[in-house]
Design a binder for these strands. Structure first.
Lengths: 244, 244
DNA sequence: CGATCACAAACTTTCGAAACTCTATTGACT
DNA sequence: AGTCAATAGAGTTTCGAAAGTTTGTGATCG
């Protein structure tokens, strides 16, 4: 809630209030979904949301329609909207699509990226490296700052791709995947994983301008993440149905 | 997104036309744009459209927002919507993206497609082959039936891809490209081009389950089309500014 | 003559309520 | 008891108008 208010103010400050209300609400909804304040599968009722964001249904509809087109929420005719539910099939399909598209864009990025791209990438990696994974005092909850730094690093990786259309599609898929990352976090205890190492490998391959090595590193990174999520889901299922 | 499309189709099949007004208007707008009844760059004013489709602004907004997310129209805050204007840069970027994504999906399709896919593909090709390119009595205007058959054939080609997400993205790009095809048609006189031969080559490579050959054939096909469009645009520019 | 400001017209965006659709519950009937 | 129909309640979709923004016009001043 606080965060979304901050995001709101920031937006207002930078763009000088020139956006439409709908843009703003869409951004706040997106943030609330990605950060886990709105749960996957949750039904998004207009009366509730209307009170929460203090806008009319028209504005909400417009925002939701856009998020639906993007895949973050789903629309059922005459039954409204719901946050896209998580499922193994969806995660598997999403991961497959991400690997294809993201590696494609990354290859282009490391080939086409200029000096400004390189510099931004180095900066993003530096930030990520120095941001603690877990917030202090709460060891099994990933820090929001780290999530932001992580997303920024991956965006910086791809950002060299001159074809904005391909880039946007790849980023859209990353957004959807972020939903799953969020929800696996409380399941906690990643088996010893060298995340920093994987990111370092990505950075090195990119700076070396090696498309193949970059793509391989990214593929490993994404696959690894998905495997952990799937096994976490399995564990959760077992907890729910201990013996039948 | 995929799921909601499935849900939508299921609903249509079972319930018989119970979609929302907005869905309907979106489809009509999309058809009007792709068929050239609404020109690229044309400003879409609410009062006009409201009268044309006999609906209120709310449903128009919703339909337009969805088309904007899809790329067929653009939205300028506080200045409404316009049909996405044509430009060389946009066409070039679009073509590049299409080649990457469509070949990717086609490779998967010819690898994963089952017998039903094969059969549908053969059927689509047969229809296309027997549909005349130009309507009778009007030699320099491509027949609408042919356009439909052409789109169906290309969709059938890609439809074997099991990953619906990748498939939908590829089809979305094809939709946008269709805008350009429509507008090059009145410029007419395609230099002697063996379109039927290119389609036959695509069919053969696909049925032979040869991913590389299929991708190559598609790449040639798409590149060729874009080159013709670009040269047609050049000719048009020269006509407009004969000597300065 | 040119620039600037105020004003008006046209349009976009947002709102609140009316119309309509789904869901769950109650009550009647077999 | 079990099934089905009617109905009330909750929620979604659509509408028409109010509020707000941009654009074009014309008058005033330098």
């Amino acid at each position: 809630m606080i965060d979304s208010i901050h995001a709101y103010n920031a937006r207002m400050a930078t763009k000088g209030g020139k956006q439409t209300l709908s843009d703003d609400v869409r951004a706040r909804l997106r943030a609330d979904i990605l950060s886990g304040r709105l749960l996957p599968g949750y039904r998004l009722k207009f009366p509730t949301l209307s009170a929460r964001y203090d806008v009319s249904v028209s504005v909400l509809r417009e925002a939701l329609v856009r998020l639906a087109e993007q895949g973050l929420v789903q629309s059922e005719p005459h039954q409204g909207f719901l946050v896209t539910p998580l499922s193994r099939e969806n995660l598997t399909e999403l991961t497959e699509a991400r690997i294809e598209l993201e590696t494609l864009v990354l290859r282009r990025s490391v080939t086409e990226g200029d000096l400004a791209w390189e510099s931004q990438l180095v900066a993003a990696h530096h930030t990520l490296e120095r941001t603690p994974y877990t917030a202090q005092g709460d060891d099994d909850r990933v820090d929001d700052c780290w999530s932001v730094a992580h997303a920024d690093f991956h965006k910086a990786l791809l950002d060299g791709c001159a074809n904005r259309r391909l880039l946007q599609m790849a980023l859209g898929l990353r957004d959807e995947a972020e939903l799953y990352r969020r929800w696996s976090q409380p399941l906690g205890d990643e088996p010893s994983r060298d995340l920093a190492g994987e990111h370092r490998a990505l950075l090195d391959a990119a700076l070396a301008r090696d498309p193949q090595a970059s793509a391989d590193a990214l593929c490993t990174h994404v696959r690894h993440t998905t495997e952990l999520l799937l096994s976490a889901a399995d564990r959760l299922d077992q907890q729910r149905a201990p013996s039948s």
